[in-house]
């Protein structure tokens, strides 16, 4: 256990190893580590940016959704209104139509009645004439008493 020439040998080893580390170990590793640090920092900032963009997009989509909902409810309200209108319109039309039909039918009925009355009048006159003929036999001429018959007709 004494100091001897081993000292010189060890110093040489030490110098060699410092040189290896300085030349071949430290620079490439330092570069790799620094590069990675930069990559990680870049990745983190990119992620941050992506997050912000995503938030903006989410806000935008919520906005769009809200607008679409509003529009949809507007459309539905308009459609309902229109449907109501159509129903009202068709109700009115139906009523008009029905009135028309009823009126037509009434008119026809009146006409029928009138015609029936006319016929009846004519028939009554005939019947009266026939009755009178039968009662009066030949004494009474239909032509001679036409004015009386006419007034009778009017009296009906």
């Amino acid at each position: 256990m004494s100091i001897n020439a081993t000292l010189i040998g060890q110093a040489i080893w030490f110098a060699i190893f410092i040189w290896i580390t300085m030349k071949y170990v430290w620079p490439p590793l330092q570069k790799a580590m620094a590069d990675r640090q930069k990559q990680i920092a870049d990745g983190l900032s990119a992620a941050e940016r992506g997050k912000q963009e995503q938030e903006i997009a989410a806000k935008r989509s919520a906005e769009a959704l809200r607008e679409a909902k509003e529009k949809a409810s507007e459309v539905i309200a308009a459609a309902e209104k229109r449907a109501q209108q159509i129903v009202e319109e068709s109700k009115g039309q139906a009523k008009v139509e029905a009135d028309k039909i009823v009126a037509g039918a009434k008119a026809e009925i009146d006409q029928e009645v009138e015609r029936a009355k006319q016929q009846l009048r004519e028939r009554v006159a005939e019947l009266a004439v026939a009755g009178a003929e039968k009662i009066l036999k030949k004494e009474i001429n239909a032509a001679a008493h036409a004015d009386i018959l006419g007034s009778l007709k009017q009296g009906l």
Binding site: M1, L7, I8, A11, W13, F14, A15, I18
Partner: peptide, 11 residues
Amino acid sequence: DPNLTFAMSIT
């Protein structure tokens, strides 16, 4: 071995 430790410290 003190030779080694002294070699390092003297360097």
